[in-house]
Simulated assay, not measured.
Amino acid sequence: MKILLTYSSKTGNTEKVAEAIKDIIPEDFHFCKVQDAPSPEEFDVILIGFWVDRAMPDRDALEYMQKIKGKKVGIFATLGAYPDSPHGRESMQNARDIVKENEIIGDFICQGKIDEKLVEMFKSLPDNHPHAITEEKLKRYEIASRHPNEEDFERAKHIFKLAFKSLAVEV
């Protein structure tokens, strides 16, 4: 079984999750950034990670995900919002919809530090803008800055370890 573990990361959050997942994958697999990923046709199982951009996978991951057809796919993501928020749920559903022509073997999403440039841009927005800085948002950004953490990594590894066991792949 040929396995690909690939990811897109802007601030390093998704890369950290990919590195954690890497620990539980059998030795014979290909690991790379999505920008360097070979054709999905070469693999039986593809785990793909992305950072959330407007409730969707980032552009690089999205383009790759749209090429995946008839495979066993695991998806993982990081975002600044709470993973169990409506935005987090919508983001994962959108990702599932993109790869719906495949068998989804597992998914994982966790919070991650928000790009400082984005936070600075939010600070310049008028108070009536939906992304304008508020005390609540500053609190969420501070919480997000502590993720992904060891607990997140363990949850991601557990999810994909179970996925591989369901495929009868020894991990």
Rank of each mutant, 00 (worst) to 15 (best):
A95D: 08
L4I: 01
P86A: 07
A77Y: 01
K72T: 06
A37F: 12
E103L: 11
R54I: 03
I143G: 09
L4H: 05
L47Y: 04
R96Q: 12
E27R: 10
H147M: 10
H131R: 14
T14S: 11
N128P: 03
D58H: 02
L5E: 09
E154Q: 15
A18V: 00
R89E: 13
E120M: 08
D53L: 13
K100N: 14
V119W: 00
E142S: 11
E136C: 07
E136R: 12
A132N: 06
L138N: 13
V73A: 03
G106N: 11
P26V: 14
S8P: 05
F29E: 02
Q93G: 05
D127C: 04
M92Y: 07
A61I: 06
V73C: 07
K100M: 10
E154F: 02
G74F: 15
P26Q: 13
V171Y: 13
K10C: 07
A18G: 01
F76A: 02
E136L: 11
A81K: 05
E135V: 13
H30Q: 06
T6Y: 14
F76E: 06
H158Q: 15
S91A: 15
P83K: 06
D115K: 09
P40H: 13
P126V: 00
S145L: 05
V169Q: 12
D152H: 10
F50K: 05
A77D: 06
Y7N: 11
L162C: 03
D44K: 04
E27F: 13
Q111W: 08
K139T: 15
C32I: 01
